[in-house]
């Protein structure tokens, strides 16, 4: 499902494209089977977000082999990459909602980009808005929502199209305990339905409450798998 073999990542420096920059990830190898769940842990700056970016094809590795949903990412065309991304749900650490769209339209966006008929979108959006407890805020623009509400909209957008792979970067960072618990119930429910889930977090209490194998990264190296 997700396979990393000796993956290295180095960010290109816009000011000095040819100049060497330090490796963000070094020799990462792991495999997550279909329907698996993994915590991704490690201190700030260890490379957790960078690893997630490689999985949702937002970065190319400097070296190594990556397969996502059974597809070797180095060989996909741009259109194939777009189709692959549609099967991946991403909850960004900074939410990344479109500021000009209301909550409803932000959630509907992945389905509209996939050219799903509008009639089939409505029921799914309503259902997921109920799940995240924001049915009454469907017309609100992102700047009108609190941090926690924005995070729940971002989670709803990531899961609404029932992705095969769900990647969440600190999905409970802005939520109180009750909301965090509710979100984790949603993620584990999706996992039980067959979605592979990877959750990056600092929250050790959350990990203890929802035990699952963990990938731990320190200074760009994988130091724990399982």
């Amino acid at each position: 499902m997700v396979l990393f073999e000796d993956v290295w990542l180095r960010y290109r420096q816009a000011a000095h494209p040819g100049a060497g920059s330090p490796e963000v990830l070094r020799g990462i190898s792991f495999e997550i089977p279909e329907g698996g769940m993994r915590w991704l842990t490690g201190p700030s700056g260890a490379g957790k977000t960078s690893l997630l970016k490689l999985i949702y094809l937002s970065e190319h590795p400097a070296r190594g082999h990556i397969e996502v949903l059974g597809t070797p990412v180095a060989r996909v065309t741009r259109n194939q990459a777009s189709l692959l991304r549609r099967r991946i749900g991403v909850v960004y650490q900074d939410f990344r909602l479109l500021p000009q769209l209301n909550a409803y339209d932000n959630i509907a966006l992945p389905m509209r980009l996939a050219h799903r008929p509008e009639t089939s979108i409505h029921a799914d959006v309503i259902e997921i808005m109920k799940w995240v407890g924001l049915s009454h805020r469907h017309q609100a623009l992102p700047f009108e929502l609190s941090g926690g509400e924005q995070q729940r909209i971002a989670i709803a957008r990531a899961v609404v199209s029932r992705p095969k792979l769900l990647i969440a970067d600190e999905p409970t960072g802005n939520l109180d305990d009750d909301q965090a618990q509710r979100v984790m119930l949603l993620l584990t429910a999706l996992n039980k339905l067959g979605t592979t889930v990877i959750v990056a977090t600092h929250n050790t209490a959350l990990i203890q409450r929802h035990p699952a194998p963990a990938l731990r990264i320190e200074s760009g190296r994988l130091v724990q798998d399982g």
Partner: peptide, 8 residues
Amino acid sequence: VHELGAFD
């Protein structure tokens, strides 16, 4: 939008 799967 690109990362959510929009075609170029």
